[in-house]
Design a protein around this nucleic acid. Structure first.
Length: 500
RNA sequence: GGACGUGUACUCAAGUGGCUAAGAGGAUGGAUUGCAAAUCCUUUAUUCGGGAGUUCGAAUCUCUCCACGUCCUCCA
């Protein structure tokens, strides 16, 4: 019973209680990147969002098979019939590389970025080019079921026929099928298709096209959308639990994916569809052509006109957690600055908490009950459609209580040993396991203790100076360390330090 | 033009019918401090884009107007 949670389903536009197909197990498919260029910051938000969802499902005790694909063929620029080119094929031609070199290069970069953001790797990361045979098989199944037709070596999905046989088409994205039917006159540049809304599932390769495979219809390559239908079916079954992706994939990608799966197996691919919302910058979509854009690297280094300084990957991850995955998130310098301070406050409170000992109170005190209540609420928020901002808010309400226990404003006699232990466990689980944050402070990353030893010596010398009212020396130590971005914190029980 | 969505304090951002509208940052006053920083305690939206309606009751539902965003071509 403890693993129950609610999830917003894009198909029904409602929050629903989650019911797995197989008790205790979850199959989740998330549309991964098309690896033809460096990973976009917006991609990072989507994958961080699904990383938190994945982590929370694991926390709830589910056995999760998390499949996130790499699209390395078939993703066209523009329309197939107007001479458009496969994105990867084009990049390979322009840079005089093998298409697989392009794919490898950007896949490596993508993996590196996911590591930087501390996103867990998926259980399976299948590539479209590794599943050409399966894709050809699915095209054949769709043809056999009468939902696709071949023209000049290319195969198109018959959206009109599908829409008439089934009410599934357009349901996810809110497209009205009647509107599709009305636009039948507009057939320019679409000579091969019966209808403009039809889409290619197998494309005959022109002679210059670099990526090509044999098929019953032509030497060619699979259409975009198809790889996700095929690989989700192969690794998760014809119908699985959760399908995710960015909001902008709803149409046409996901709509067509659903159509293909129905066309092949006459069943719906996923029970729950979840979509993450867009990352904006200064209120607008990030767009390279408008200059309203920033790369992850620029964000880390601060080398951009849009920000005043660099922000670490964990600060950015924390910043993302402060909004809900279904809301747009506006990236601004002020918001990042605020996020950086919030992240540090949380991590420092966590350090303080882990050092608290000797709670001697009973579980009957108001204070003890309040702590437990906040902890419970934090988990309840996560179970209500993965509401990370709400859960974080509850953690932040606990922060002054933790600091108060350390400073002596609050008493360890008012909290029970069990509750203190639970509080520690809660922070640990939320920060590291669920939110996937890492401690970036120097104290945490400096494992050999040299830094600690030096700092203890310096703090000791300054303490002596202060005892002798030698403010000149003590302030010089403090100010010089400040210039090195090391902050000293004078507390009741001594001085601690933190590196900015 | 069509589809979907958003508009909450100085900024970011929760909340989708009912106690005093979360949280972070900022600002403010106080405690603490040798002075600071950090920390703790206050204060900071009688109000949720404008207007009308439904309801005992709405930021939350309906209508309308305004503004913005995303998609409809490639995008997470």
């Amino acid at each position: 019973m403890e693993n129950k949670f609610n999830i917003y389903n894009s198909l029904t536009r409602k929050k629903e209680a989650f019911n797995p197909i197989i008790e205790g197990r979850i199959g989740m498919y998330v549309c991964g990147p098309t690896v033809y260029s460096d990973v976009h910051l917006g991609n990072c938000r989507t994958f961080v969002s699904f990383d938190v969802i994945y982590r929370y499902l694991l926390h709830l005790g589910y056995t999760v098979r998390y499949v996130r694909n790499i699209t390395d063929v078939g993703h066209l620029e523009g329309d197939a019939d107007s001479g458009a080119e496969d994105k990867i094929s084009k990049k390979a031609r322009l840079e005089q590389l093998e298409p697989m070199e392009v794919v490898q290069h950007y896949t490596n970069g993508f993996h590196k970025m996911m590591q930087i953001f501390n996103a867990l790797p998926p259980s399976i990361e299948p590539r479209a080019t590794g599943h050409i045979i399966e894709q050809i098989e699915m095209v054949q199944e769709i043809i056999d079921n009468g939902f696709a037709y071949e023209k000049n070596g290319s195969v198109y999905f018959d959206t009109i026929k599908f829409a008439k046989s089934n009410d599934a088409y357009g349901k996810l994205s809110g497209r009205v099928i009647d509107d599709l039917l009305v636009e039948t006159r507009d057939l320019k540049n679409q000579a091969e298709k019966n209808h403009p809304s039809d889409f290619a599932i197998w494309i005959k390769a022109d002679p210059s096209h670099l990526m090509r495979w044999n098929s019953p219809w032509s030497v060619g390559f699979p259409g975009w959308h198809l790889e996700c239908s095929v690989m989700s079916t192969k690794y998760l079954g014809k119908t699985f639990d959760i399908h995710g992706g960015g909001n902008d994939l709803k149409f046409p990608h996901h709509e067509n994916e659903i159509a293909q799966n129905f066309g092949a197996c006459k069943c719906a691919p996923a029970n729950y569809w979840t979509h993450t919302n867009m990352l904006l910058m200064n209120g607008k979509k990030m767009s390279k052509s408008d200059g309203n854009s920033i790369t992850p690297e620029e964000l880390f280094t601060g080398n951009s006109e849009h920000i005043s300084k660099g922000y670490s990957p964990m600060v950015i991850r924390f910043f993302m957690l402060q909004s809900h995955y279904r809301s747009t998130l506006d990236l601004t310098d002020a918001a990042l600055l605020a996020g950086e301070k919030g992240y540090r406050r949380l991590m420092e409170a966590n350090d303080v908490l882990m050092k608290l000992e000797n709670a001697t109170g009973s579980t009957d005190t108001e204070f003890d009950k309040e702590i437990n209540s906040l902890i419970n609420q934090a988990f309840e928020h996560m179970s209500d459609d993965f509401n990370t901002p709400m859960a974080l808010a509850r953690l932040f309400e606990l922060v002054p209580k933790i600091n108060g226990l350390k400073d002596g404003h609050l008493s360890l006699t008012d909290i029970s040993a069990d509750t203190l232990k639970r509080l520690k466990e809660t922070f640990k689980v939320f920060i590291y396991d669920i939110f996937g944050l890492k401690d970036e402070s120097l104290a945490a990353t400096n494992g050999n203790g040299t830094m600690d030893g030096l700092m203890n010596l310096i703090i000791d010398i300054r303490q002596s100076a202060r005892a002798n009212k030698d403010w000149g020396t003590s302030d010089k130590i403090r100010d010089t360390l400040n210039e090195l971005k090391i902050l000293l914190k004078d507390g009741k029980d001594g001085t601690s330090w933190v590196k900015e």
